[in-house]
């Protein structure tokens, strides 16, 4: 009887602890959404045509002055939306890579998937003279090809994390080398244009392309939510995960496929916006700090990071109007370094 009482008290404690963790996740999510809202509002107000908050809101819903409506709906809002969508996709993809491969460095930047997209785009521009949708297509193909190559080359009776990561890093360096070589061999003007693409930018994503990327990201995010539950057991090691009933290879392949698709989609639209996929999950995991993969928080952090970076870059806070990819590293990396420097020493 006493034991039952104690157990039921303990059950309340357990539920309470779980609620605390959940609250922390929600808190981080809310915080990031707030950052997105504030930065987004700022982005709508700032610019050559200065708007009051009232005008901006009226413009956003299609009321008020025709010029304001045009500026807000056609120019500023799409850019904000693009930053949020692309950033969330990168953040989510990075979190999936890192938790599935159990390596905090595993991100599309370091695994060569972004670099593959860049190589596709660089070849498209400098060698084949492509632009626009064809260029996006080639970037998508580049990312996909590299992912496929990693897959084929790393597969040996199942997918081992360390093989996947090593092969990915090797291919990343290979692509980066080829990009550097192509750029060294091409005309100065063209090389400069390519440099801008390889940095990544959300300024030209609008209309159908934006809708496509947003819809794609949403579909993939729902799919991620379905596979997300395997991430908890997977983090305990392959054997433990199998003993808990996870199809380890299938789960890993599924998660990585989704991550690759997210990266390819986001990159084809915005270019390989540097380090969002690396930095956002690292920040999110440290903020949530429950030993989980922090998937939702990573997506939100990615969106917030990208949007803030775009606002900073667009409005010349660095002295020049810089594409978002330049600023993401500058905004995210110091924050990550600060988090790393202040986390208490933990013995591993």
């Amino acid at each position: 009887m006493a034991g039952d009482l104690r157990t039921s008290a303990l059950r309340t404690t357990v539920a309470g602890l779980r609620a605390t963790r959940r609250r922390r996740q929600v808190l981080v999510l809310t915080g990031m959404v707030l950052v997105v809202l504030v930065a987004g509002t700022g982005a709508l107000l700032m610019g050559a045509a200065g708007l009051t908050p009232g005008q901006a809101i009226a413009g956003a819903v299609g009321l008020g002055d025709k010029g304001d409506v045009f500026v807000v709906q056609k120019l500023r809002l799409p850019r904000v939306e693009a930053a949020v969508v692309v950033g969330a996709a990168f953040g989510l993809a990075g979190a999936l890579f890192q938790s599935t491969l159990r390596n905090p460095l595993a991100s599309p930047d370091i695994l060569g998937i972004s670099t593959g997209a860049s190589l596709g785009a660089v070849t498209g521009t400098l060698v084949l003279g492509l632009s626009g949708v064809a260029l996006s297509g080639l970037a998508f193909t580049g990312a996909g090809t590299i992912a496929l190559l990693i897959w084929v080359l790393a597969w040996r009776k199942g997918l081992h994390s360390i093989r996947f990561v090593l092969v990915g890093v090797g291919l990343a360096y290979l692509c980066a080398s080829l990009i550097a070589w192509i750029m060294a061999r091409s005309q100065e003007q063209e090389a400069a244009a390519v440099l801008t693409w390889t940095v990544g930018s959300v300024s030209d994503i609008r209309g159908e392309q934006l809708a496509l990327v947003a819809a794609g990201t949403l579909v993939l995010a729902v799919a991620v939510a379905v596979v997300a539950r395997t991430q908890g057991p997977l983090a305990l090691g392959d054997d433990n995960a199998r003993a808990l009933g996870v199809h380890v290879d299938a789960a890993r392949v599924g998660a990585l496929l989704l991550a690759v698709a997210l990266v390819a989609l986001a990159t084809s639209a915005g270019g390989p916006i540097a380090f969002v996929a690396l930095v956002a999950p690292a920040i999110a995991r440290r903020l949530v700090n429950d030993g989980g993969a922090a998937l939702a928080a990573s997506a939100a952090t990615g969106a917030a990071l990208t949007l803030v970076a775009d606002v900073v870059g667009q409005h010349g806070l660095l002295g020049v109007a810089a594409p978002v990819g330049i600023v993401t590293g500058l905004v995210g990396a110091p924050y990550l370094l600060w988090l790393l420097a202040t986390t208490e020493k933990r013995s591993r």
């Binding site: 370091i110 690396l278 590293g329 990550l336």
Partner: peptide, 14 residues
């Protein structure tokens, strides 16, 4: 390793 990656992320855009 993580700090190294973060420093690269900071310097590359510069």
């Amino acid at each position: 390793a993580l700090v190294g990656a973060a420093v690269t992320a900071l310097i590359t855009p510069l």
